[in-house]
Amino acid sequence: MFTVIGERINTTLKKVKAATAERDADYIKEDVQNQEASGATYIDVNAGARIGHEEEDMKWLLSVIQEATQLPLCLDSPDPAILEMAYGLVNQTPLINSISLEKDRFDPMMKYLKGKECRIIALCMDDSGMPKSVDDIFSRAKSLVEELEGIGFKRDDIFIDPLIQPMSVAAENGTMAMDAVEKIMTELEGVHTTGGLSNISYGLPQRKMVNRIFLAMMMARGYDSAIMDPLDKEIMAVLKTGDMIKGKDNFCMNYLKAVRAGDIIA
């Protein structure tokens, strides 16, 4: 099954920032319940936008969100101290967002992750910057998997983010991501691939169309998770239909259920 990491509780979004600043618990709870009803597997929580308030905002969000849902959370912060605090407050095994090979990030995150019961998003980023080729992405993915396995992570708990880059600036960015996903999913069998799907459409009009088609094409290559908006009905319909076509939906039951619920309309 596809892992949907619901991206809506992020304080860089204006309404979430305001709701967090005003401690508007109803707004947050309703949003989280909508994400769950729409098929989110994880709720991502990012409290980083109000500089100087991340710790208190994260604490408040975690307590409010967990009153509204039993779903596991994706703890989204670059700061191990914030993640440490958040880890102690979650009821379910969390997904941590994220580690990368950037030196300043890698060492403290490895220290943080060691011995913890959690899953992890691993970005194919190192100190030389964004990846420029399939080999760049794959070799970084491989290093990350080896390092994480070295401290006891199972492959099933590792979500590799190949770092999707926009079509608007280079024509090869789509195939680069798709080829990399296929290589990762075959040669590092057992891991998951995820990431910010909508990066692909940055700078283009009618972005949702680009995102939908890209999701279908990525799924064909093995992509099995995304950080996305579960309230976007059309892309969720693509996802459910894609899972069905890939044979991951026994007797097409989820597909049929979604059609009957009015979630898939062609």
Binding site: P166, M167, S168, V169, Y202, G203, L204, P205
Partner: peptide, 8 residues
């Protein structure tokens, strides 16, 4: 009116 690829 113009998009990034056109600008490029």
């Amino acid at each position: 009116e113009m998009f990034i690829p056109e600008v490029l």
